[in-house]
């Protein structure tokens, strides 16, 4: 069941997401342009525009979604949003909220040695910067 409060105050998740991303989520008019262009939607449970809506309503499933980890900060949505919203920053904010209250999303010590040896440094550093606190 979804509980939506109407206190007039932004919910906790929205407050944090807005502060960390520097974006005004209320500016989103749900046109779906971000999701239409996103190369990763086939891998996402909640699409970028849906995520924004869920955060606006303070629904905690936004933080549990795989979408925030699947987003690879490719900036295509930022380029196309007619409202000038940097959706990639909202994605980063949600990852950061998760990482700052939980554990790491990727556990470096558990990655196979062969993987670590084979991959270029930019793959590893980028991955750990996105998936660990």
């Amino acid at each position: 069941m979804i509980k939506i409060t109407a206190s007039g105050r932004p919910n906790e998740l929205l407050r944090k997401a807005a502060a960390l991303s520097g974006q005004d989520l209320f500016a989103c008019y749900q046109c779906g342009t971000c999701s239409a262009g996103c190369p990763m939607v086939a891998e996402m449970d909640l699409l970028p525009d849906q995520l924004i809506r869920h955060v606006l309503f303070g629904m905690s499933d936004a933080l549990e979604s795989t979408a925030i980890w699947v987003c690879a900060s490719c900036y295509l949505c930022d380029e196309r949003c007619p409202r000038g919203i940097d959706v990639s920053k909202i994605m980063e904010a949600l990852r950061q909220i998760w990482l700052r209250q939980n554990e790491d999303y990727v556990h470096v010590a558990q990655l196979p040695k062969e993987t670590l040896a084979e991959l270029p440094p930019i793959a590893l550093v980028a991955n750990f910067r996105k998936n660990t606190g």
Binding site: M40, E43, A72, C74, L119, A123, L124, A126, N127, K130
Partner: peptide, 18 residues
Amino acid sequence: TQCCGSYHIVNHDEIVSR
């Protein structure tokens, strides 16, 4: 101009393969 899957190669290489 669309992403190749980037750093997901580390822990989700199936995404990169797709």
